[in-house]
Design a protein around this nucleic acid. Structure first.
Lengths: 203, 203
DNA sequence: TCCGATCGTTCCGTTTACGGAACGATTTCA
DNA sequence: TGAAATCGTTCCGTAAACGGAACGATCGGA
């Protein structure tokens, strides 16, 4: 299979892998170390010159804390319910990962069970989160100063501090969360307010 | 990784693969031929003695008309939204595959868009379908004599004839579908009525 | 301005996944 | 009952995925 001398494989996997790795601020060497695979393997994968084994894919996906399907995006998986990340009371599903010139974006679908309040640790500096409420009432933002929003409203905050997610009103809440990780942490442009959350109501 | 002389890999993948293959009435040789891989590869995979490459997994999943995640069931994928099968207006998601002594069962989640009516071709003789309505109103069964059921109601029919799925009442419908494929097509025990659908309403 | 650390790439020997062929067992049909 | 077909497994040579090591480039601190 693929006999042209250079033996290429699906380049999209390489792009997604590199995107996820860099979005987490991991070097290629560090990811290889955490996954317990060789640097040559990760490098070859990102360049699309290797046809990885399942074992390799599992190891790398685990090191990135994503399900394997976030890397393969296998054709069957619908844009909309591909791959849940992290367990707990807040169920988040990775929908899409894409890179822009200045930053990497991860789009997730959040499902917060009724009455639940969960605190997430701080992200690296420069990372911002943008949440759009679909259903229910959500209280979120920096743990020190959260805000509340209902369906159709949006919240944004700098997530370099611990932040909370809570479903109010005894009802399960649904939201789309966009995490923006700038490639240059210094330039947090296109970001969010400094200390607290900001609420807006679109459309 | 896995240095015990016998070099085993995840046996669950092998079991699922064999289940899906046999549920489709395919021989190992035939599946290998359709997937364009060697018989030794399929055999080794089913026995859990090989660590397949992504390319191999893609080829086999495609030959079975399932997304790769139906074989890997990767840990991230939630029971409930793992892997959609077949496109069109009726979106079906493979939830689980399990084998019993007499038959193989495939459990799917059906989502029928509002107002849609779709006809599916006949399955091999002996195959029966059992549908449980979760939301909306569904009209289904043999195309010649379909029945209608609402939330909490169940429909069963022998699916060796073309059958339809329709969402009534201008509302999207949701259902769980169980497909039973007997290992011995002659003995269609535990099955459904002969010509038409049967409706029941469980407490 | 060195020097050390770390970056990502490339080279290399080992391991192993691959497909094809050969195999015995089982089934099918004349 | 024998011959042919097909079943799933096993053997084998080849291709390639693997991890480790060596490489030059880049960055940071003394």
């Amino acid at each position: 299979m693929g006999e042209d001398g250079t033996s290429r494989f699906d380049p999209a996997i390489g792009r997604r892998l590199r995107g996820l790795r860099e979005a987490r601020g991991l070097s290629l060497s560090e990811l290889a170390r955490r996954a317990g695979v060789g640097k040559a393997t990760v490098s070859g994968l990102e360049h699309g010159t290797r046809n990885p084994t399942l074992e390799t894919m599992y190891a790398i996906a685990a090191a990135l804390s994503v399900p394997m399907s976030a890397l393969t995006l296998d054709p069957g998986a619908p844009a909309g319910d591909a791959s849940p990340v992290r367990g707990r009371a807040v169920v988040s599903t990775l929908l899409e990962v894409f890179r822009e010139p200045g930053a990497t974006y991860e789009m997730l679908r959040l499902r917060i069970l009724a009455g639940v309040e969960q605190t997430s640790p701080a992200h690296p500096p420069g990372v911002t989160e943008h949440l759009s409420v679909v259903q229910g009432t959500i209280r979120t933002g920096p743990a020190a100063a959260p805000l509340t929003a209902g369906p159709g409203e949006h919240l944004s905050w700098a997530s370099d501090v611990p932040h909370v997610y809570a479903a109010l009103g005894g009802e399960e809440a649904l939201a789309i969360l966009l995490i923006r990780t700038p490639h240059d942490p210094a330039a947090a442009a296109g970001g969010a307010p400094e200390g607290a959350a900001r609420r807006s109501s679109a459309g």
